[in-house]
C-alpha cells in the first residue's frame, strides 16, 4: 500500500482573515489534524502601513483581529480540534506567513483566498503569490467560489 504523504504532517499553518475562504481552509486543516494528530496554528496578520511604526498600537485593528481569531478558534473547537492562535503585525502579510511557517516549523500551509477581481480580472494577489513562491513548506491554496456562481 502506498504511504499517505499526510501521515508525516504534524503541524499546519492556517492564516485567517475572517473570510469564508479561510474558514474552508480551517475545515480542511481540522480534518487532516484529526486523522493524523496534527497541530493547527492560526495566524492573523495586521498589515501595518509604512506611515506608522510597525509596533504601533492599532486599537481597532487589534479588536478586529481578536474577534476573527476567537471565531476561528470556536470553529476549530466545533470540529473537535485544539488550535493555537497568533497575532502579528507586519508590512506584508505574505512575508509574515512565510516567516511564521519557518518559525513554527510547520509541515503544511493551507491558505484560503477570495475570488478577487480587483481590476475587473481575476488576480491571485501579491501576498498569496509571495507565499506560493517563498514558503519552504508545501502550500495548499483554497479559492472561494466565484461570486456569480453563488
Amino acid at each position: 500500500m502506498a504511504v499517505n504523504p499526510l501521515q508525516n504532517v504534524s503541524s499546519i499553518l492556517v492564516p485567517v482573515d475572517g473570510t469564508s475562504a479561510c474558514h474552508t481552509a480551517l475545515a480542511v486543516a481540522a480534518d487532516i489534524a484529526k486523522r493524523h494528530k496534527a497541530h493547527i496554528h492560526l495566524l492573523y496578520v495586521i498589515q501595518v502601513p509604512r506611515t506608522i511604526a510597525l509596533d504601533a498600537t492599532l486599537e481597532g485593528e487589534l479588536q478586529r483581529a481578536e474577534e476573527i481569531l476567537d471565531r476561528a478558534e470556536r470553529i476549530a473547537e466545533g470540529y473537535g480540534v485544539a488550535v493555537a492562535g497568533e497575532l502579528v503585525q507586519a508590512r506584508q502579510t505574505g512575508h509574515a506567513i512565510v516567516d511564521e511557517a519557518v518559525e513554527r516549523n510547520v509541515d503544511l500551509v493551507i491558505l484560503g483566498i477570495g475570488y478577487n477581481r480587483p481590476y475587473g480580472r481575476f488576480e491571485l494577489g501579491s501576498e498569496a503569490k509571495y507565499v506560493l513562491e517563498h514558503a519552504s513548506a508545501p502550500v495548499w491554496l483554497i479559492r472561494d467560489e466565484e461570486p456569480s456562481a453563488q
Binding site: P49, R50, T51, I52, A53, A90, R91, Q92, H95
Partner: peptide
C-alpha cells in the same frame, strides 16, 4: 524581505505612503 518597496524616491505622493513624515 519586506523592507524593500518598489517606487520612485523623488515622488512626493509615494514618499508619503512609505511614511516619510515619520
Amino acid at each position: 524581505g519586506e523592507m524593500v518597496v518598489h517606487g520612485d524616491g523623488s515622488e512626493i505622493a509615494f514618499l508619503e505612503t512609505v511614511g516619510a513624515s515619520r
